[in-house]
Amino acid sequence: MVVFGVLAALGVIWTAVWVWVLGHSGGRAAYEELVPKVDVIRRRLFYLSAGSLTLLLLVSFYWLPYFPMRALTIGKPQLVVQVIASQWYWKLSTSEVPAKTPIEFVVTSKDVNHGLAVYSPDGKLLTQVQAMPGYTNHLIYAFERPGTYMIRCLEYCGMPHYVMVTPLTVK
């Protein structure tokens, strides 16, 4: 929802500019005089967006979901859960894990591509990783609160894809 907030905020700014320009489509200004002014605005916009994107790029690396980064930000895994996806169910080496403990999900697939996505008890998407045939992905995650979490498939894998769900209990 933070992300939607950012989209909405930028969207409102952009829409305001758009409406303003459309509202000022009437009249006649000398185009040749406008062009150099817009060149300046465009250059500033370019530096502004290039600058903020570079900043966003660097800052965002902190949340990289890949193994070495999560081992730093969340902690070295204390427990391993083997996950095998197949059409159309999940096989977990355990269906119960402790809270507040970095857990390593070792994820693969027996047939087609699947996607392991963990949803919180109140339905928020918390983390995900792909389950791929012939490959093993390692995902670290620590659950904050006990409760019943849901693992849903997030990579389309055939007709029953949308019912490929299994609960995960966090104690």
Partner: peptide
């Protein structure tokens, strides 16, 4: 930006 500049105070036909 080019498109918007073209529109601005152009007397655009809606």
């Amino acid at each position: 930006t080019g498109g918007l500049t073209l529109i601005y105070r152009s007397g655009m036909r809606w």
